[in-house]
């Protein structure tokens, strides 16, 4: 009953707490390495362009920042076309 009422009043939106967590995750990762959204887009375009010059890319390549504790890494995932 309580959950039902909650669902009606929150009209299916995620809680503000989970929104805050999501926003913090992105902002802190970027703050820590000094990377803006713009820089991430530039990196993604340039890395994909570089790989595409030598190999054939298949599907959706991804370049993103990931964090483990206070350490960050660039996670590059580029699917390649097989012969």
């Amino acid at each position: 009953m309580l959950n039902f009422l909650k669902r009606i009043f929150s009209n299916g939106q995620p809680s503000s707490r989970s929104r805050a967590n999501d926003r913090l995750r992105v902002v802190l990762t970027h703050d820590r390495v000094g990377a803006s959204n713009h820089l991430m887009e530039t990196l993604q375009t340039e890395i994909i362009a570089l790989i595409a010059r030598h190999m054939e890319i298949d599907g959706t390549p991804e370049v993103r920042l990931i964090t483990e504790g206070r350490h960050s890494a660039l996670d590059i995932s580029i699917p390649l076309k097989g012969r």
């Binding site: 707490r17 802190l28 206070r70």
Partner: peptide, 18 residues
């Protein structure tokens, strides 16, 4: 507020700040 999902919890803060 934490229980209602309207405030960051202690666990959230520790996860972010490590």
């Amino acid at each position: 507020m934490v229980r209602r999902g309207d405030m960051l919890s202690i666990e959230d803060l520790i996860e972010h700040l490590c």
